[in-house]
């Protein structure tokens, strides 16, 4: 049986992919890979703000946006969101 954290990570991963696709509809789904920063996908600063705001909103968490400014790639973004959600 999968651990709860695995389930959470799968759900958060799906949410991140859906959110990125909604804000950046021109990016093919296969290009949204964990090793990329949002900048690598062509997200400008306003896109990045929109993606982080939407993720915080969708997960119903209260987390300062400043905490997201140093995540190096999408994998780290997902890890951080899972951590925040489980607090």
């Amino acid at each position: 049986m999968p651990q709860r954290s695995d389930t959470d990570r799968a759900a958060v991963t799906r949410l991140v992919h859906e959110t990125v696709a909604a804000v950046l509809p021109q990016v093919p789904a296969e290009q949204i890979t964990g090793d990329k920063h949002l900048k690598d996908l062509g997200a400008d600063s306003v896109d990045r703000v929109e993606i982080i705001m939407a993720l915080i909103d969708a997960l119903g968490v209260r987390e300062p946006m400043a905490g997201f400014s140093t995540v190096p790639d999408i994998d780290a973004l997902i890890d951080f969101l899972v951590e925040v959600k489980q607090r």
């Binding site: 703000v49 300062p64 946006m65 997201f68 400014s69």
Partner: peptide, 25 residues
């Protein structure tokens, strides 16, 4: 926070996400 600064009289530095996210927080 070190989101942007003018450490020298002829040069600004900025962490774009750091600054925008701090503004919004």
């Amino acid at each position: 926070t070190m989101d942007s600064a003018r450490p020298m009289p002829d040069h600004d530095i900025a962490d774009v996400d750091g600054s925008l996210f701090a503004y919004l927080d």
